[in-house]
Amino acid sequence: MTSKNKKNICILLLIFIAITSYFLWLSNRAVEIIAVHQDYNFSSVLVKNFPLTDKGKINWWLENRDMLEAKFNIPKHAPDGSFTIIFWDFGDGYKEEGKYDRLCFNDMKTDKNCIEKEKYMTIYKFNNEEPFFSFNGSRYLLGESNKIIKMKQDDKS
């Protein structure tokens, strides 16, 4: 093997290590809950450092749902047992409404009460059914022993 080939292999290895380290760092950052806004049985949770993958997001929910209920009283159930929780990217913080299609929270009495609509995860529960998780068109259910099951696109349940 020539020294040029060894040099190229070392450079590629360093790039691989750097990229792997970056993704490990991203996936191991602690999720920061900035705020929770509630409107009846609908909760918006503003977060930073949310997991990158759908599976990581669901696992984070499973590991933290008791804490969310104890600390923030979510989910808030409707009389029929249904609820909706949306986890939003807090991004650059609260902004004025100004820009079209920002999500604004009426429970804040300030001009800066809106965020960009960057949704990480939605959790729905209807009636007494099991909750399901939604991510940009993909939906998942929890099976036995919290096994994550991807729903087919044509599933209505």
Rank of each mutant, 00 (worst) to 15 (best):
F42G: 00
F42Q: 14
F42P: 00
S43G: 08
S43F: 04
S44N: 15
V45Y: 01
L46W: 01
L46H: 05
V47E: 06
K48D: 13
N49A: 02
N49F: 01
F50N: 00
F50K: 02
F50L: 05
P51Q: 08
P51H: 05
P51L: 06
P51R: 06
P51N: 09
L52N: 10
L52E: 09
T53F: 01
D54L: 00
D54Q: 11
K55T: 14
I58K: 02
I58C: 03
N59R: 10
W60E: 04
W60K: 02
W61P: 03
L62T: 13
L62A: 11
L62E: 15
L62W: 09
N64R: 04
N64Y: 04
R65V: 03
R65D: 05
D66N: 15
D66F: 04
M67W: 07
M67F: 13
M67Q: 12
M67D: 13
L68P: 04
E69C: 03
A70L: 11
A70T: 09
A70Q: 12
K71Q: 15
K71C: 06
K71G: 01
F72G: 04
N73W: 00
N73R: 07
N73M: 06
N73C: 02
I74R: 02
I74A: 05
P75T: 09
P75G: 10
K76H: 01
K76T: 11
K76R: 13
H77T: 13
H77A: 14
H77Q: 15
A78I: 05
A78W: 08
P79N: 12
P79T: 09
P79A: 10
P79E: 13
P79W: 04
D80V: 04
D80Y: 01
D80G: 02
D80R: 03
G81E: 12
G81I: 05
G81N: 10
S82N: 12
F83N: 06
F83C: 05
T84C: 04
T84P: 00
I85G: 01
I85M: 14
I85D: 01
I86K: 05
I86F: 00
F87W: 05
F87M: 10
F87R: 03
W88Y: 15
W88L: 11
D89G: 03
D89Q: 09
D89P: 00
F90H: 10
D92H: 10
D92I: 09
G93F: 07
G93N: 11
Y94T: 05
Y94L: 15
Y94H: 05
K95V: 12
E96M: 13
E97G: 14
E97L: 07
E97H: 06
G98K: 14
G98A: 12
G98E: 15
K99M: 12
K99R: 13
Y100F: 08
R102S: 12
L103N: 07
L103D: 08
C104G: 11
F105V: 11
F105H: 12
F105R: 11
N106G: 15
N106M: 10
N106F: 08
D107V: 06
D107L: 09
M108K: 15
M108L: 15
M108Q: 12
K109N: 15
K109M: 11
K109D: 15
K109C: 03
K109P: 00
T110E: 14
D111A: 08
D111G: 08
D111R: 06
K112W: 01
K112T: 14
C114T: 10
I115W: 06
E116D: 15
E116G: 06
E116L: 10
K117G: 05
E118L: 09
K119T: 15
K119C: 07
Y120D: 03
Y120L: 03
